[in-house]
Design a protein around this nucleic acid. Structure first.
Lengths: 109, 109
DNA sequence: AATTAATATCGTAATATTGCGATGTAAAAA
DNA sequence: TTTTTACATCGCAATATTACGATATTAATT
């Protein structure tokens, strides 16, 4: 085992979970916040900023790219990573939809 | 390796990431939605509802309990799991705070 | 008291994730 | 043209997660 049985859930559940999973790592949260706080957004900053190896940062960036929340454009020998505003807001809405479900306390409690 | 270097991030980043991580599994999303949609909320329903073994469900419930988002109260030989409304709303606010950051496109892009 | 029911915990196998050094690649600089 | 810079990718070791059968545990039922 060790493999998640995705076929037992709806596509929506799988999709939401996989977004949350990608965001569920402190390095990736830190990367997003760093990109947001920076005027420019070059990858090499991150290696100095976070205390991780270049290969590790690159891997985290790849995962963030995979869900579309950031986007990298080549600028000479550097790469400029930025938040993909549309996707960011789309995620925000998706999470809101989930959290805005009515969670009133049930009789049994 | 394989261990996340939590000491390089702020407490806030670690906390947010660990919440997102717990929610980042389709079984746990499905469990939360099932509890919400149900009038009552007994664990054994879940074994029939989701196609997972009882031991597996129990493990997922434990993780959800660990972040406080659900709460279980013993009711005879059953356990009644419900959403912890306060924590739910607290999380919602936390995620909103994160997503409401200004993510305007930067010059470099 | 013995049995059944509902769940929790333990142990373990399969797989995934994290992190990093080494190496590849492509553009700029020398 | 060689070297340097800024990444990306590969391969691997360490650790974490997922899933489940087997086995507690605890309360109701018989």
């Amino acid at each position: 085992m060790g493999i998640t049985k995705t076929d037992m859930y709806t596509d929506e559940q799988n999709k939401l979970a996989s977004l949350l999973k990608v965001l569920g790592h402190p390095a990736r949260i830190a990367i997003l916040q760093h990109i947001i706080n920076q005027k420019t957004c070059i990858c090499n900053d991150l290696v100095d900023e976070l205390g991780l190896a270049q290969a590790t940062i690159s891997q985290h960036l790849k995962e963030l790219k995979s869900i579309g929340i950031i986007q990298g454009s080549i600028d000479g020998k550097s790469v400029c990573y930025c938040i993909e505003e549309k996707v960011w807001k789309q995620f925000q809405e998706q999470f809101n939809e989930f959290f805005n479900q009515n969670v009133e306390v049930k009789k049994c409690c």
